[in-house]
Amino acid sequence: MVVKLKLEELKLASVVFHHLWTRRNGLIFQDVFQSPSTVTTMAQVDHVMYKEVLTKDSERTARRQTNEFSQSWKPPAWPFYKVNFDVAFDQASGRMGIGVVIGDSEGELMECLIAPKKHVPSVFQAESYALHRVMELCIELGLSQVCFEGDAKVVIDAVNSKEEDSSWYGQKIEDLQQIMAGYPEWKIVFVHRTANVSAHTATKLAIRVSSENVWLEDDPVEVRRSIMDDLVCNVLNQS
């Protein structure tokens, strides 16, 4: 008997096949073994994120067509710091870049970080690693009152969720939740790309460098320009 798959099932199957091929290459060339359950979970997560990207693209197109108000960056209330982060991920090479911009209640830059990383197998792992590095950075700086913002919706929603997940991905999320639990005045919020432009700009630089770079109370020209645009936009929105 021949069973015809529905369109969504066919899309998921294609993602599973891709991960099976990646699993085979990882075992042959890197001596890394992934269990069938891990492959299935990774495929399901990537499929969900793929649909999310398509939805975001449709939403962005609709907003442009209807001239709806776009979400913009706003400085945090004193004495909080706002930490915007973003991730660039190249599936073919397994390479990612992290962009982080930390600002105070006046909109002034406190720190900017860009960092590359190799051998990353999926978008989910790239985004969860980025959030983990961002949290580490805030701990290093001694920041106890922080609002994290990013457009990694799947990871952010998972960290904010109270549901238990016993999968490998669930363990990564639990690690992030445990760090958050130690800082009761930390919060993490999903924002659209329009409210995360500075971090996105930093990420474009991160994917091109070979090691982590940090700027204290200073930043690359491209990031500074984005920050100034955010501040101007915020003033115009308030007027």
Rank of each mutant, 00 (worst) to 15 (best):
V3S: 04
E9G: 06
V15R: 10
F17Q: 12
R24Y: 05
I28M: 10
F29M: 03
F33Y: 15
Q34H: 13
P36M: 02
T38N: 11
V39L: 06
V39G: 06
V39W: 06
T40Q: 04
M42Q: 07
M42F: 01
Q44T: 13
K51F: 13
K51E: 15
V53Q: 14
L54N: 10
K56S: 08
K56I: 11
K56N: 12
A62I: 06
T66N: 14
E68Y: 08
F69N: 12
S70R: 15
W73L: 02
V83K: 02
N84F: 08
F85T: 03
V87L: 15
F89V: 07
D90G: 03
R95D: 03
M96C: 04
G99C: 11
V100N: 01
V101W: 09
D104S: 03
S105G: 13
E106N: 14
G107Q: 08
G107I: 05
G107V: 10
E111I: 07
V123C: 01
H132A: 13
H132E: 01
H132Y: 09
R133F: 07
R133Q: 11
V134F: 11
M135Y: 15
E140W: 14
L143Q: 04
C147P: 10
C147R: 11
D151F: 07
K153R: 08
V154W: 12
V155R: 05
K162Y: 05
E163L: 02
D165L: 06
D165T: 00
S167R: 00
Q171S: 12
K172L: 06
E174A: 02
I179R: 15
M180E: 05
P184Q: 08
E185Q: 12
H192I: 00
T194K: 02
T194M: 03
A195V: 10
N196V: 01
V197N: 05
S198V: 05
A199S: 13
A199N: 09
H200D: 14
S210K: 13
S211V: 01
E212W: 03
E212G: 06
W215A: 09
L216A: 00
V221M: 00
E222G: 06
R225G: 08
R225M: 07
V232E: 08
Q238P: 05
S239D: 07
